[in-house]
């Protein structure tokens, strides 16, 4: 052991690089196969579908292979408001989730750090909603916010709400539902970074004349940036494609439809597969571009 210190570093490193690690390849194989089968194949299939054209005189939902790139221009022009709305709602829900989750994660990860029992209890509470189905939870909120539900009735009784007012079916209800459903995805990565945050940096900030707010802005936030980035991505990406909250059956209405609802109805209701596929790819591309720009802007790779 002790003699390895005397060996020159390159000599020690070279054999390790040259040696083929078959074990690693074998271990990677299931993952690679899985990705090929369940990610690459459907993706390629989706791209082909998006260029298909209707069979002349065929049934509804019958398409043949082709290169109908108009599927893209048509679907984007037709559904542009829904695409914009989807990203608008997703951004809003992500920001709200961040504003709600950050103090929560900070409290659990930093303030009650010395009480592990309280910490686990609070974390369980954050995850607890996951024990109930996503659909059931969203339906429950629909009940609570419905026109006969306690909130609307109470607001009307207090005359702060017009008699013909609704909550369900409004953008508020949809953004609320998205925020609520994705909060754990925001809280957990934030907690994971804040739990490891060294409070001595905060003390050093205070010692160097930074007020608590400045310390938060200049030290706590930059140091928890990895958590903020992963939390916002885990919230934003699924929220942008979500079609449950915005659907008329749940918290939304026709006026709050998002691009996810358009994809769903094209695939399942009108069986317009090429348009649905084209919309899916557009959604994916836009998300990729936004996420790429965001991660580059956040510059998390700079963090040691």
């Amino acid at each position: 052991m002790a003699f390895s210190a005397f060996a020159s570093a390159p000599a020690a490193a070279e054999p390790a690089v040259r040696r083929r690690s078959w074990v690693a390849l074998v271990l990677l194989l299931p993952g690679i196969l899985y990705l090929l089968l369940f990610f690459i194949t459907p993706l390629v299939s989706l791209v082909f579908t998006s260029f298909q054209q209707p069979v002349i005189g065929g049934d509804i939902g019958q398409y043949s292979a082709g290169f109908k790139w108009e599927n893209y221009t048509e679907s984007v022009t037709q559904y542009l408001p829904l695409i914009l709305r989807a990203f608008g709602y997703a951004v809003l829900a992500t920001v709200l989730a961040l504003v709600i989750s950050y103090p929560l994660a900070y409290f659990i990860g930093v303030k009650v750090r010395s009480f592990p029992l309280v910490q686990s209890l609070l974390l369980t509470l954050v995850i607890a909603p996951f024990f109930i189905s996503f659909l059931l939870r969203t339906l429950a909120w629909k009940q609570i916010m419905s026109d006969e539900g306690p909130i609307v009735v109470a607001l009307k009784a207090l005359s702060v709400f017009p008699n013909d007012g609704h909550i369900t079916g409004t953008p508020f209800a949809v953004v609320f539902g998205l925020t609520y459903n994705f909060i754990p995805f925001m809280t957990l990565p934030l907690y994971a970074t804040l739990e490891r945050l060294d409070v001595r940096y905060i003390e050093a900030g205070n010692d160097l004349y930074a007020s608590p707010f400045t310390t938060f802005r200049k030290i706590t936030v930059p140091l928890s940036l990895p958590g903020i980035v992963s939390g916002t991505l885990l919230t934003f990406i699924p929220a942008a494609g979500d079609y449950i909250n915005a659907s008329g059956d749940f918290l939304g209405s026709a006026q709050t439809s998002m691009v996810g609802n358009a994809i769903e109805s094209n695939f399942l209701v009108t069986q317009n597969y090429p348009v649905a596929a084209a919309l899916s790819i557009v959604l994916m591309a836009v998300i990729l571009v936004i996420v790429g720009l965001y991660v580059r802007r956040a510059g998390t790779e700079d963090l040691v």
Binding site: D198, R200, A204, V304
Partner: peptide
């Protein structure tokens, strides 16, 4: 007052 901390606590970012 300023402190030189035992752990240095230099801001890593």
């Amino acid at each position: 007052v300023n402190t030189v901390f035992q752990s240095y606590a230099l801001f890593p970012h």
